[in-house]
Write a protein that binds this DNA or RNA. Structure first.
Lengths: 343, 343
DNA sequence: AATCAATGCTCCATCGATTGAGCATCGATG
DNA sequence: CATCGATGCTCAATCGATGGAGCATTGATT
C-alpha cells in the first residue's frame, strides 16, 4: 500500500529563520516563550509562530535538552502491566508528571533483575532527573546506578535502603485483612481456625511485613498460625495453583479460610478452587491483598485491601517537588474494601 | 533524611579521555563499538571500558542522537492501563521493541483527544521514528501530525485511513461470540431470543463492526435483533450500569442474554446484575468482547473473545521491520475463550 | 635508502537549540 | 546637537557524541 512518503528532512529553527527573514535565535526564543524577555516584537513572534504551525515544526528535544541544564524527564520502571495496581500506578504517575510539565517515561521490566538494571541505565542515558523504581527486585542496585550517574531515585511499592521509599503500610493492611477474614470465618463457619497464606515471595519486604501482620492478627485472635499453611510461592497464578494442588495431592488438610497475597495469585487460587471442587458450591472464606473490580463480583464475600495509589504518588511527587524526603520510609495506609462496598 | 548527594556533574567522554590520556573520539568509538573499524588497539579499548565502568559513565543519548541520523526510538500512545488488553499490548510492544534494539516510549492518553495530540507532538520532539496510535479517537489527525514531522505512524486496535492499521477481525469475532451466546441461551433457557448489546461507542469503528457481526448472527439464527436492546453507552463501568438501570427503571423488558462490548463495561454490567437482583441466583447468559482471567472465574459460563495481541504486534513489527504494509487494514482473528477452557 | 601499507591514533566540523553579549536604530531629554 | 535609555534584533559559543579526513610511526619490501 502506498501511504504519503515521509518528508525527507525535518524543519529546524534555521529553516524557519530563513522563511521569516530573521535569525535562528529569534525563532528559538519565540518558540520557547522567552521572546518577551529577549525583546522580540509581537509582530515577529506571531509571524514565526504561524510559520512553525504551517511547516509542522516540532522542536528537536535532543538538541534542546543537550543545551539546557535540566531535562525535566522523569523515569519509572514497573514490573508488569497485568494488574490494576501497577496499571493505576503508571497512569497516575504519568498524569501527575504531566501536570508539572515533566515528561514521564515508563518501562516494564517483567520482574527480571537484569532488565531492571538495563532499563535503568537506558533511562539515565536519556538524562532522567528522577528514576522511580517500582517493585524492584534490587532497589539499592538501581539507586547506586542512579547516584553514580548524577540522577536521583525513589523506591515505590518495595523499599530500599539507600533512597527514600514510599510503600503501603503492609503490616497494618495485612493485620486488618486477616482480622476481617477471621471474623468472616466466625460468622459463616461458626468458628475460627488458622488461615492459609498464599502467594508472594518470602524474600520480599512486603510479603514479610504482610506475614507479620497475618501472624499478629492470628495471635490477637487467640490462634496460632500453622507454619505449614504458609505458601509464599511467587506471584504467578500457575504457581499459586500448583502450590495448592501439591498440598491437596499430599493429602494434607485444607484451611477454612485463605489470605491471598495479590490479585495475580488469587487468579490461580480461585481457579484451583473451582477446578478441584474441594470447597463444593461454597468458596472458602477469603481475603486478598490488592484490589480488582472483578474480584468484588466473584461472590463469596472476598475481602480486599486496596493500596492507596493516589496517596502514594502524592508522596512521590512531594519528594520530587521539594527535593527532600521527610523520612526514609513513608508508609501509606491502604484502604479496606468489602464486597460490593465500592458501589 | 540525608541520602548521598547527587554528583554535581556527569562524566562525559572528555572526562574519560583525559583520564585515559587519549582523545574523545577514541573514547567514543570504544564505547559505541566502532573501535575495531577505527583501528583502536584492544589495550586502549580495554582501559577505556574499565574507566567508564569505574566512573559510572552513561552515554548522553541527547548528544548521541543529535549527531546520528536515526534515533531508534519508537513511540506508542494507548488509551488506558486499566484492562488486560491494553496492558498486554504495551508489555508486548516494549518486549518486541527491545528485541530489535529499539527504545520504546509509551504514554497513556486517557481517551482524551487533546492529550492524544499533545502526546504525539511531544513524542515527535523526541525524534520517534514510528508512532503507534492505539485505540486513538482521531487516528488520521495523529497520522497527519507525524507525516508533517517526517515520522511514520501505524494505527492499532482502531483503524485510520491514512496509515496502515492493524485491528482485530471484529466482525468475525462478534459474529462467533453472538452465536455462542445464542447457543448457550438455547441450551440453558430452552429458547433463543434477541440479545442485548452493551458498551462501546456507536461512532467507533470496532463497535460498528461488532454490531454488524452481532446483527448478522441474529439474522442467521433466524432472529431479528431488537434495536431498543442496543446500548453503546461508552466504555466506563458506570455508564454501562447506568444504561441498564435506566432501562430497568423504565419498566422495559430485560433480555435473556447479553453481549458486552469490553471487560470494562462488563464490570458495570455484572455489578448491576448483582445489585439489582433482576436475574436472581442465576446470571443472564453472557458474552464479552475481550478477555480477563477473573471473568473466567465469575461463573455463569460467560463466553469471551480474546484479541490476539501477540499476532497483532507481530504484524506491527513486521511493518516496522520492512517499512511497508501488505495492505491498508490488517485484520487479526481473535480467539474464542470458553469458561475454564484456558487452564 | 626510498617506498608503501598497515597500524593507531587525533583533529575538527557537525547535529539543532539556547543564551549571554553586543550592535544598530529611534525618540526623548538636557 | 550630543547623550541616553529603550527597543529589536544578531552573533557566536556551547552542550556531548560522532565520524570523515588526515597525521605519525612502524615494519616490510624493492
Amino acid at each position: 500500500m502506498q501511504f504519503p512518503p515521509r518528508q525527507t528532512k525535518k524543519t529546524t529553527i534555521y529553516d524557519l529563520a530563513e522563511l521569516a527573514g530573521t535569525s535562528a535565535s529569534a525563532v528559538s526564543s519565540v518558540l520557547n516563550g522567552t521572546w518577551k524577555k529577549r525583546r522580540i516584537s509581537a509582530k515577529l513572534a506571531e509571524k514565526v509562530t504561524r510559520l512553525a504551525q504551517e511547516q509542522g515544526y516540532a522542536v528537536n528535544m535532543q538538541a534542546s535538552l543537550l543545551r539546557r541544564e535540566s531535562s525535566r524527564i522523569v523515569g519509572m520502571i514497573v514490573p508488569k502491566y497485568d494488574n490494576r495496581y501497577f496499571g493505576s500506578i503508571v497512569e497516575t504517575f504519568e498524569t501527575m508528571a504531566r501536570e508539572r510539565g515533566l515528561f514521564p517515561i515508563v518501562t516494564c521490566t517483567r520482574r527480571d533483575p537484569e532488565l531492571e538494571v538495563e532499563a535503568a541505565r537506558e533511562m539515565l542515558g536519556y538524562q532522567v532527573e528522577w528514576l522511580i523504581a517500582t517493585g524492584a527486585t534490587d532497589p539499592d542496585r538501581i539507586t547506586d546506578i542512579c547516584t553514580s550517574a548524577g540522577a536521583r531515585s525513589l523506591n515505590l511499592d518495595l523499599p530500599g535502603s539507600r533512597a527514600p521509599s514510599i510503600i503501603s503500610d503492609n503490616f497494618a493492611g495485612a493485620y486488618g485483612l486477616t482480622r476481617r477474614i477471621l471474623d468472616n470465618c466466625q460468622q459463616r463457619l461458626g468458628q475460627m481456625s488458622p488461615l492459609m497464606f498464599v502467594g508472594g515471595r518470602a524474600s520480599d519486604h512486603n510479603t514479610g511485613e504482610r506475614l507479620r501482620g497475618f501472624k499478629a492478627a492470628h495471635q490477637d485472635a487467640g490462634l496460632s498460625p500453622d507454619p505449614s499453611f504458609i505458601l509464599p510461592c511467587g506471584y504467578a497464578p500457575e504457581k499459586a495453583e500448583a502450590a495448592l494442588e501439591a498440598r491437596w495431592a499430599s493429602g494434607s488438610a485444607m484451611p477454612g479460610g485463605m489470605f491471598v497475597n495479590s490479585t495475580i495469585s488469587l487468579e490461580g487460587v480461585v481457579h484451583w478452587i473451582k477446578r478441584s471442587g474441594h470447597y463444593g458450591q461454597d468458596m472458602p472464606v477469603m481475603g486478598c491483598f490488592d484490589w480488582d473490580p472483578f474480584v468484588t463480583l466473584l461472590g463469596g464475600g472476598i475481602e480486599m485491601v486496596r493500596q492507596d495509589v493516589p496517596a502514594m504518588l502524592r508522596a512521590v511527587f512531594s519528594i520530587i517537588d521539594s527535593g527532600e524526603a521527610p523520612e526514609p520510609i513513608i508508609k501509606i495506609p491502604p484502604i479496606d474494601m468489602h464486597e460490593m462496598a465500592e458501589a
